[in-house]
C-alpha cells in the first residue's frame, strides 16, 4: 500500500521536476534580457519584456525585441552591477539545473523500485556540490554588493538568505548521500542472507 503511494508521489515529483527543469532552462536563456530590462527586479523585467514581445504596441517592432534576446548576452557584462547579477544568476541557474537532473535520476531509481543503490548516493553528492556552489556564489555576490555600495543593506536581501539556505541544503544532501550509501550496503547484505 505504502509502496504504491511512494510510486505515485515519485511520479508526481518527476513531472514537477521536469516542468521545473524546463522553466529553469528557459529562465537561463532569458537571464541577460531580464537583468538589462530591470536589474532591481529580474522577474518583473522578464514579465515586462515578454508582455512587450507578445502584446506589442502600435509602434513596437517585435523583431527588435526578439533580436534583443541575443544582443543582451553581449550587453549584460557592461556595468559591474549587471555583470555581478548576470554571473550570479547564470551560475545559480546552471547549478539548479544540475540539482534537478540529479533529483530526476534519484526519482527514476525509486520508480524502478531500486531506491537503495550506490548511484543515488553519487547523485546526492553531486547535488550537494551544486548547492555549495550556489551558496558560494551568493556569498561572493553579497560581499561584492556590500563593498560596491558601501552599505550593510545587501545583508538583508534574498541573496544573503541563499548563503545559509544552500549551505544547509548541501549538508543535508551530503548526509542523505551517506545514508543512501549505508542503506545500499545494508540492502546488499540483506539480499545475500539466505
Amino acid at each position: 500500500m505504502e509502496s504504491v503511494f511512494t510510486q505515485k508521489a515519485a511520479r508526481v515529483l518527476r513531472v514537477l521536476m521536469l516542468i521545473a527543469l524546463g522553466c529553469n532552462l528557459i529562465a537561463l536563456f532569458l537571464v541577460p534580457t531580464a537583468v538589462l530590462v530591470n536589474a532591481n527586479d529580474p522577474l518583473g523585467g522578464t514579465w515586462t519584456f515578454l508582455a512587450g514581445l507578445f502584446h506589442p504596441g502600435e509602434d513596437d517592432i517585435q523583431a527588435a525585441g526578439a533580436a534583443f534576446l541575443l544582443i543582451a548576452w553581449a550587453w549584460c557584462w557592461a556595468t559591474p552591477h549587471t555583470f555581478a547579477l548576470t554571473a550570479f544568476l547564470l551560475c545559480s541557474g546552471c547549478c539548479t539545473a544540475q540539482i534537478l537532473r540529479q533529483g530526476l535520476r534519484v526519482v527514476d531509481t525509486i520508480l524502478q523500485g531500486k531506491p537503495f543503490s550506490m548511484d543515488n548516493a553519487v547523485s546526492l553528492r553531486r547535488a550537494a556540490v551544486c548547492s555549495f556552489v550556489i551558496s558560494g556564489a551568493a556569498l561572493a555576490r553579497t560581499v561584492f554588493s556590500v563593498c560596491y555600495y558601501r552599505s550593510v543593506l545587501p545583508l538583508v536581501t534574498y541573496n544573503a538568505l541563499f548563503v545559509p539556505i544552500f549551505a544547509m541544503a548541501g549538508l543535508l544532501c551530503l548526509v542523505m548521500s551517506a545514508l543512501f550509501h549505508q542503506a545500499a550496503e545494508m540492502k546488499a547484505e540483506n539480499d545475500l542472507t539466505i
Binding site: F5, F116, M176, M186
Partner: peptide, 10 residues
C-alpha cells in the same frame, strides 16, 4: 514524503 517512506523501509 518520499524520504519518509524510504527511511521507514530502510
Amino acid at each position: 514524503l518520499l524520504l519518509s517512506a524510504l527511511l521507514r523501509r530502510a
